[in-house]
Design a protein around this nucleic acid. Structure first.
Length: 559
DNA sequence: GCAGTCACG
DNA sequence: ACGTACGTGACTGCG
């Protein structure tokens, strides 16, 4: 096909539209049978836009697309991950100056939305033809961008082959324990209701607890409690502000508990039940490959990358994520991955030494932070230390640190100083990275993934600082993303080649979750561990922790 | 559709 | 004096 040329095969329209015989439409099965050999032929190259989606649709009709040579959505993302608008219409406008017809012109929007089957053949043909045509015409300019910025290897060797891997994960889905969720739902509903009543009686009247404005008026107006930080629209009623009011009014504790349990109920329990497929009992997330400017994946509908783990009651949600009968969930978690990448990039001797001696960095930091012996560090303290270390690394101020930890501004400043004295190369890395960002206009990861940093000359001080922090974060967060993506490719390859029934089902930034037939466990455990740990040799060892269980709660590693 | 809040790495 | 780690997505209220 050439630019400006496209073909449309009408199938499944409810009406063909004016002037067209019904015979213009072809039987679905006949069309599939004719196209299948072409679509499945490795030698016939395909250019697609958002291939993961179309390949999934075709897969449901038994067509396994081979020969994917270019995905214009993923290509545009790799070329400039910091920007938004990788949709076909956005790209056609940005790169070709073509204003495409939005789909809403054909099918409308909202509740009265039509399906494509209700659109006349000529209208659909023009629309679909434009999609195919623009996809073809976008390949060259995007390819040229990738080449110019030395991004072709990253694109060809990582992002493009990742598409079918993500597709398989999405299609396989995750099994849920619906009975558990419904029981949990009932218990939460009861507790939330009781807390509502407790809040109303503590305040003296009913109101909408979920309305930040009403809540703010009551706490800081009616009850005259001391207001904390402000937002654009009024006084903040976020958890840290309410926590600071503990002991000052009986409503505070109920309010905090209400917030936690209501969040759990609406987002997780109700949300998951809503999105569970009633026939398969599974949820099917989308792994978005073109959203995060650091190169990470994101997950939506439902988001399975933010399932609670930090509090015990929240963590219970993980009991709902189960393996099929005769299967086991296996999680493989990169331990302190970002810090190991940092150690590698910075060649920081103290960090490298600690990792080589197999010491637990966060526990050591926690023992310093809370002045307790290493053996007495609690889970909670370790978790806080972990937050603090990353916060400092990415430029948090003494003030910010004091807010999170509850220590004084002075103590926080001392802690940050001690941190930088202990790990002097980290400061050097920050300076080097900023210099590169300012001089070259971009920063990059070990595998050449780039994030462009705009010219800051016209920006305010705080805007510049924000960009600086993004620049410092990107090589670490993006490097992490590079490495786990490579591991995923090798794992997918190994599972296929060794004809294993094990399926990779989730990726949570530094963790992979597998559904493993019981009889494959002994084989798969060491296989996953070595593939992940040997993904790319760093200056420090890479450590992966495995855990298994009937559900995600039992299989949840330490961090 | 935005703002605020809160869940995760 | 100022504003105060990075990266995400979902839910709710409100105009």
């Amino acid at each position: 096909m050439a630019a400006g040329e496209a073909y449309y095969i009408p199938v499944g329209h409810q009406q063909t539209g004016e002037g067209l015989e019904p015979e213009i439409q072809l039987p679905l099965m006949q069309v599939i049978a004719s196209l299948k050999p072409v679509l499945e032929d490795q030698k016939i190259k395909k250019y697609m836009h958002n291939a993961k989606y179309d390949m999934q649709v075709l897969a449901r009709y038994g067509v396994n697309v081979r020969g994917l040579a270019f995905d214009t959505m993923v290509g545009a993302y790799v070329a400039e991950p910091g920007r938004r608008g990788f949709g076909l219409k956005d790209q056609a406008f940005q790169r070709l100056g073509v204003v495409m017809t939005p789909i809403s012109d054909l099918i409308g929007r909202g509740s009265k939305m039509l399906s494509m089957a209700q659109v006349a053949v000529r209208t659909a043909a023009n629309y679909a033809g434009a999609d195919a045509d623009m996809t073809l015409r976008l390949v060259e300019p995007i390819m040229a961008d990738l080449r110019r910025h030395s991004l072709l290897d990253l694109y060809r060797n990582i992002e493009l082959p990742l598409i079918p891997v993500l597709m398989q994960m999405e299609m396989h889905g995750v099994a849920l324990d619906a009975d558990f969720l419904r029981t949990f739902e009932a218990r939460l509903a009861e507790q939330v209701q009781a807390l509502e009543q407790a809040i109303y009686s503590a305040v003296g009247h009913e109101f909408n607890i979920n309305s930040t404005r009403q809540l703010g008026d009551i706490l800081f107006g009616e009850l005259k409690l001391p207001a904390g930080k402000k937002t654009k629209t009024g006084y903040s009623v976020s958890a840290d502000v309410i926590e600071s009011l503990q002991g000052k009014h009986p409503v505070v504790d109920s309010l905090l508990e209400y917030r936690q349990l209501n969040k759990l109920k609406s987002t997780y329990v109700d949300g998951l039940l809503e999105l569970m497929d009633q026939t398969t009992g599974r949820v099917y997330t989308s792994f978005n490959q073109t959203v995060a400017s650091s190169g990470r994946l994101s997950s939506s509908n439902p988001n399975l990358q933010n399932i609670p783990v930090r509090t015990e009651v929240g963590r219970q949600i993980r009991r709902a994520f189960i393996a099929d009968p005769s299967y086991i969930l296996l999680t493989a978690d990169y331990s302190q991955f970002e810090l190991r990448i940092l150690a590698h990039i910075t060649h920081e001797p103290r960090l490298i030494e600690a990792f080589n001696n197999n010491e637990d960095i966060h526990t050591i930091t926690a023992s310093t932070l809370f002045s307790v012996p290493v053996e007495q560090v609690t889970k909670e303290q370790r978790r806080l230390a972990k937050t603090v270390v990353y916060a400092i690394l990415y430029g948090q101020s003494a003030f910010g640190l004091s807010q999170v930890t509850g220590m004084s501004n002075r103590e926080a400043a001392d802690f940050i100083n001690r941190y930088h004295e202990t790990f002097p190369n980290i400061k050097q890395y920050v300076e080097r990275t900023l210099a590169q960002a300012h001089q070259q206009g971009y920063v990059n990861t070990l595998f050449g993934r780039k994030r462009f940093i705009p010219d800051m000359r016209a920006l305010s001080h705080s805007e510049r600082q924000a960009l600086d922090r993004e620049a410092i974060n990107m090589p670490i967060q993006g490097g992490n993303a590079d490495l786990i993506k490579i591991a995923m490719l090798r794992i997918a390859h190994a599972l296929r080649e060794q004809r294993l029934k094990t399926r990779m089902i989730l990726q949570v930034h530094d963790e992979l979750v597998f559904e493993v037939p019981v009889e494959e466990l002994e084989r798969v455990r060491p296989l996953m561990k070595s593939l992940m740990e040997e993904v790319y040799p760093l200056d420090v060892p890479i450590k992966v922790e495995l855990k298994q269980g009937r559900n995600w709660y039992e299989a949840e590693p330490m961090e």
